[in-house]
Amino acid sequence: MSEQARHLLEVDDLEVHFPTADGLVRAVDGLTFSLEPGRTLGIVGESGSGKSVTSQAILGLHRGTPAKVSGRIRFDGVELLDLPIKDLRRLRGNDISMIFQDPLSALHPYYSVGKQIAEAYRVHHSVSRRQALARAEEMLELVGIPNAGRRVHEYPHQFSGGMRQRAMIAMALVNDPRLLIADEPTTALDVTVQAQILELMKKLQREFGSAIIIITHDLGVVADIADDVLVMYAGHAVEQGAVNEVFYQPDMPYTWGLLSSMPRIGSPRGQRLATIAGSPPSLIRPPSGCRFHPRCAYRGLVEGDACVTTPPRLVAGGADHRARCHLEPGARERVRLQLSTIDSVGER
């Protein structure tokens, strides 16, 4: 029991399927992970791997749509999937809040930034409009928006991209949530602004102690901010573990591909980049066996045709590290040694 109470969030065998004219889209298909209070989990993966769908499932945002959601999502011991909508709403924006990739489209164009933050506060606190607006101003100040007293009355289109994302963060944190889900919060921003936003999130996490799930496709962002990493491929986790484990001891071919296809500022210039052959699989008819097998360059190292016939299970490789691959530990070790990019950064 105490083992369970340790987790703030437990996602178990989550499935989110969308019925479409072409067939059932298995956007998330058997995803399992957990998160402890105050920690940061980075979810990485190609676009279409199910990252956003997962984050929306946690908040129950697929309710009322044709999507079929099953599995278990426990937040602080409470099962969210069959929680009555009234109770779920009490959690949304209060205990769990969310920020999105494009802050311009995520903010309502017709209401001032202050009003929108105040609304998030008033939904969960019985205070007057004026008190809520004062709180909004306080939050804007906290996230580093200059002239917050004036800015609170301005509209989203009057803010720059970075300011808007700060405002979104202010809105997400106005109720001091225990979990903040950030879905590609810096993808639409310049690196300089991204750096500001990441610093801000780290600082606020230190102050508020919230757990964070940060979704991104930028491994640099994960390396910067995450304690744990979850690598998603075609709707499920293919590797997960502590950030150093996954970056320095990556345990399966897709992660190898991701890590070595990135050009790096520190590595020798001019050599060809590693690539991952092929393209992401159909989520309607996912490949048999290992979902990555059609693109995998290493399945020759696995004896027999297990990769094509049998889905690999998520198996623990280290204390805090699991991967979904049929390769023997010895073979993995040999490949890691060959991959220069991973090798060179592996020397800590």
Binding site: L59, L61, S97, F100, D102, H108, A120
Partner: peptide, 21 residues
């Protein structure tokens, strides 16, 4: 629109999502 999703994610009741947003 994204801002409708934002409103729901804030915990705004559905009637207010429809009317206000």
């Amino acid at each position: 629109e994204d801002y409708i999703r934002t409103a729901r994610a804030k915990g705004v009741p559905e009637w207010a999502v429809i009317v206000r947003h």
